[in-house]
Every structure is written in structure tokens, then in C-alpha cells.
């Protein structure tokens, strides 16, 4: 299902090449606005949102599942934070200090973790397929979010929270710094912890993982909790950047996060996918998105573009296979003609 060229060990090098090519292309198309410091900073503001959602999707996919509820969970988390702030600080929410803001963030994170654990529990213990569980959770949360907000935008967040999403440390946006720290944490988690290593084993062969003294169900519950924690991180940053929450922000990012996994070489059947691949994929998508945006294209066109990229990738995968096959057969036939039966095939 994943094109072979994204699965090979050299895939990340290919991705890096693609990234360079796209940056060069975008710079050539828009030399005034794309290759500028300002644009670089603005991209590093936007990147964390795509990145966190994609990482949340990635862990679910590596386990052999999917998390369709990541956006809905992020919006829910934002709403929980808004409600907590009102409950604690009332109308003075905007003036609330860091302590109150941290409380709201903690509450939001806790809510997301609980939702994730519930999904994980349903998937692991009740054995409901992940696609069904998370689709149901998404629908449920979308409904709940609408009921709570009555469709309105809630705004007025304290300075501290705005800083998390919008602030700068020297020349570097704070959300970007958070992203760097989280990626480093993930590298350690995926390669150096039992749960992280177990995640890959169970995604590939849950039966053998179970026979290997891995607590498959516990790992699944933790995986979906982690996936939801990424939704919460997304919410922290969205709240800061938009100074508001709403029932259905960022819905189009669901497809983008799946696309990032696909591009990053995560096998949708589970078990494989590297962090490096994900980071490269996410940066590529951000560059494409910003580049196309700066060319002043229709936002709806951008959405169509994501779907188009997926289809192109699939086609490229198949084409690559086909071409290799044709080339091999042709080589075999040539060898046959040159000296009947002296060599067979060409091998890799």
C-alpha cells in the first residue's frame, strides 16, 4: 500500500532531496516573499500544529490503528481550557496569571489523556476496531463541542497562554522550541523505552508481541493516551495563536496528518515508521502549504492539493514498481538475444 520507495532505508534521503527541491522551486516561483527570514519565522510558527497532529496520528498508525479523533480532541481540549479559565477567573480570565493558565492547561491535558485512554481501552480490551472507535469519538466530541460552545467562538485567554502559542525567545518562536523538545522526547520514547519499542513490535505482529511478555493491551491504552496528548499540545498552541477556541477549528488538518504519515513512510498496517521520516514529511507539507499560500492561491485549492499529493504518491509507488519490472524483463530479453540463454535476469 505504501509505495516501495518510501519504505526503503534510503527513503529518508529521498525525502530530504524532495524537500530541497521544493524549497528551491518555491523560492524560484516567489523570490520576493518565500526565501525570507520573515517567512522562515512564520513557517516555524505554523509547523508545530501540523507536526503535533501528525505525530499523534503516527503513534496510532504504528500500533496498527488510526486516530481520527485527533482534531476533535484538540478542539475539546481547548474548550475545556476556556471553561476552566472562566470557572476559576470568571470575567477576569484575560488578566489571569501563569498559575491559572497552567491549571487550565493541566486540566485540558488531563481531559485529553482520559479521552485517549478510553479510546485505547475500547480498542485493546473491547477489541473494537480503531477506525470505528476513533470515528465514534470524533463524532461524539464534535457534537459535544458544538453543544458546549453553541457554535460560538470563545475568546479571551491570559497572556501566558498566548505566549505559548505566539511568543518568541530571541528570534525563535516558542511553539517551535516546544516542537524541538517534543521531537527529542519522542526520539527517546520510541527507541529507548519498553513501551516505545513494544509499540513497533505489537504493530507488526500483536500475537508474537503478546507471546513475548509485552502487555499488548496496556501498550495500546498508552499509545492512544499519547496520541491524545499530542492533540492537547496542538490545542495549547492553537489557543495561543488564535486567542480563541471553537467547535471545529482545523478540521482539514485530519487529512494532512494522515498524509504526513503516508509521506513519512509509516506503514498503515502498523509496525514501521521513523521519526526522521515524519519530521521531513511534516516540513515538506508546511513548505508546500506556505509556498502555495504565498502565491495567493485559493485555500480550497490547497485542500484539494493535499488529496492530489496522496494520489500522486500512490501512483508514483505503483509506477516505480512497474518501471522496475519492465526494466528487468527488458534486460532479461536483451541478454537472451545477445547470447541465447547465457544469462538470466539482472537481479537487484
Amino acid at each position: 500500500m505504501i509505495p516501495a520507495f518510501l519504505q526503503r532505508p534510503s527513503a529518508n534521503r529521498t525525502l530530504a532531496g524532495v524537500l530541497v527541491a521544493i524549497v528551491v522551486l518555491m523560492s524560484a516561483l516567489n523570490p520576493q516573499r518565500f526565501p525570507t527570514i520573515g517567512n522562515l519565522i512564520s513557517m516555524s510558527y505554523q509547523l508545530p500544529i501540523i507536526a503535533f497532529l501528525s505525530l499523534g496520528m503516527m503513534v496510532a498508525m504504528v500500533s496498527g490503528g488510526i486516530n481520527l479523533a485527533i482534531i476533535a480532541t484538540a478542539n475539546f481540549t481547548g474548550i475545556v481550557m476556556a471553561l476552566l479559565l472562566r470557572a476559576v477567573a470568571g470575567d477576569a480570565a484575560e488578566e489571569a496569571g501563569a498559575g491559572v493558565a497552567l491549571l487550565a492547561m493541566g486540566g485540558g491535558l488531563a481531559a485529553a489523556l482520559v479521552l485517549g485512554a478510553v479510546m485505547g481501552w475500547l480498542i485493546a480490551y473491547v477489541e473494537v476496531p480503531a477506525i470505528l472507535t476513533t470515528l465514534a469519538m470524533m463524532t461524539l466530541l464534535n457534537g459535544v463541542n458544538l453543544v458546549i460552545t453553541k457554535g460560538y467562538t470563545l475568546s479571551g485567554f491570559p497572556e501566558f497562554l498566548l505566549g505559548v502559542g505566539n511568543g518568541m525567545l530571541g528570534p525563535v518562536p516558542i511553539p517551535f522550541l516546544i516542537l524541538v523538545a517534543v521531537v527529542m522526547g519522542m526520539a527517546v520514547f520510541l527507541r529507548r523505552t519498553r513501551t516505545g519499542l513494544g509499540l513497533y513490535l505489537l504493530g507488526s505482529n500483536p500475537i508474537a508481541a503478546g507471546y513475548s511478555n509485552l502487555h499488548v493491551r496496556a501498550v495500546l491504552v498508552r499509545t492512544y493516551a499519547l496520541s491524545s496528548a499530542f492533540s492537547a499540545l496542538t490545542a495549547f498552541i492553537m489557543v495561543g495563536q488564535l486567542n480563541s477556541v471553537k467547535a471545529n477549528y482545523a478540521e482539514s488538518y485530519l487529512l494532512v496528518s494522515v498524509l504526513a504519515c503516508f509521506l513519512g513512510g509509516v506503514d498503515p498496517f502498523g509496525g514501521t515508521g521513523t521519526l526522521t521520516g515524519m519530521v521531513l514529511a511534516v516540513v515538506i507539507l508546511q513548505v508546500v502549504s506556505t509556498g502555495v499560500n504565498l502565491l495567493r492561491m485559493d485555500p480550497f485549492f490547497i485542500q484539494a492539493l493535499w488529496g492530489f499529493i496522496i494520489l500522486v504518491l500512490i501512483a508514483a509507488g505503483f509506477l516505480g514498481e512497474r518501471l522496475r519490472e519492465v526494466r528487468r524483463l527488458r534486460a532479461a530479453r536483451l541478454a537472451q538475444q545477445a547470447a541465447p540463454g547465457s544469462t538470466v535476469g539482472t537481479g537487484p
Partner: peptide
């Protein structure tokens, strides 16, 4: 039941004993 075929020999051999390979900070 026995093997995670796509994964390395190392990942398979050590799957049962990861908790005995912990070094600093409780990391593998």
C-alpha cells in the same frame, strides 16, 4: 507466535528482556 518478521534479529531476541537492559534514567 514466535517472531515479528519485519523487525530485526536484535529487536526479536531482546523483546522479552527489555526491562533488564535499562541503563541511565531507566532507558533501554
Amino acid at each position: 507466535q514466535g517472531l515479528v518478521m519485519k523487525h530485526s534479529v536484535e529487536a526479536n531476541v531482546t523483546a522479552t528482556v527489555l526491562d533488564r537492559l535499562l541503563g541511565r534514567l531507566g532507558l533501554v
